[in-house]
């Protein structure tokens, strides 16, 4: 609760945790966008919590993507763990199926690319929080009425990816002009926004299963174990028991300089 921040000053301490090491898991991160170009599907492995953040790529997989109009594209491994095809442009309304075959096991996922919703603009909002002023970036667009829409936002500040995950839907805002504020702060390991910072926001139009995936992750990152929801692996839309997702989404990138 934001209000509690007024009363309680929290205090941090790095602690040792005793964690059982699990075997590495296959992670598939598949994206097909509506921008013509190289489309990428990444395969990597998870590592135990205590290891360094170096994730082994997974080579030698057969990766294909097909759509519901009879097209099939076979992706090729251009770098270890990176399977690409291009140029390819996703089409709104089409259902895409990803098939990954590795070590005689097959993993499949489908995702429907939603209709693109154009970003109108970005803006900077100043919020007084006690005696300090916090600047946030807002995305402006008009949600199309009568259909369920889901969105994901990816924010970079001066080219650096922020660590908070943003996902929203129009459950309570169908058909409205939207001002989506991308709150973030020190909790996300980033500095606060300052004048002169260049903020780049990518807005993605995503389907419902992919929204559930990002929304689950976004809830968990707020306050780790003890203070928030019980964390768990987000529900993947890929069958066969892997981590990750396959998302056919629209994308648009805008940027703004903080005044």
């Amino acid at each position: 609760m934001a209000g509690s921040g007024l009363l309680f000053t929290s205090c941090e301490k790095v602690i040792d945790v005793d964690i059982k090491e699990p075997p590495n898991q296959l992670v598939i991160e598949g994206n097909i966008t509506d921008v013509s170009g190289t489309q990428t599907i990444k395969l990597s492995q998870s590592v135990p919590y205590t290891d360094t953040n170096i994730y082994p790529p997974v080579s030698g997989a057969v990766v294909t993507v097909s759509d519901d109009t009879g097209n099939t594209w076979t992706f090729t491994e251009t770098e270890p763990g990176q399977y690409t095809f291009g140029p390819l442009q996703g089409v709104a309304g089409r259902k895409y199926t990803m098939t990954v075959t590795l070590d005689n096991k097959t993993y499949t996922a489908t995702s429907i690319m939603p209709q693109a919703v154009p970003v109108d603009s970005l803006s900077i909002t100043k919020i007084s929080f006690g005696s300090t002023e916090i600047k946030t970036v807002a995305v402006h667009y008009t949600d199309p009425a009568g259909i369920a829409n889901q969105y994901r936002y990816v924010m970079r500040i001066n080219g650096v990816l922020t660590k908070r995950i943003y996902a929203s839907n129009d459950r309570l805002q169908d058909g409205k002009p939207i001002k989506e504020q991308l709150f973030y702060g020190r909790d996300d390991d980033n500095k606060e926004l300052e004048s002169g910072d260049v903020v780049e926001v990518e807005m993605q139009g995503i389907d419902m299963p992919v929204f559930k995936y990002w929304f689950t992750l976004s809830q968990q990152t707020q306050r780790g174990p003890g203070g928030g929801v019980t964390p768990g692996n987000p529900p993947s839309n890929i069958s066969g028991g892997v981590l990750g997702y396959f998302s056919a989404h629209t994308t648009q990138i805008e940027s703004i300089t903080v005044d």
């Binding site: 945790v17 964690i19 991160e29 919590y49 953040n53 994730y55 990816l161 174990p225 019980t230 964390p231």
Partner: peptide, 12 residues
């Protein structure tokens, strides 16, 4: 509580 057992990379 639930601690992470492992970690992986998702879009950086």
């Amino acid at each position: 509580v639930t601690y992470p057992a492992g970690k992986y990379n998702l879009g950086g």
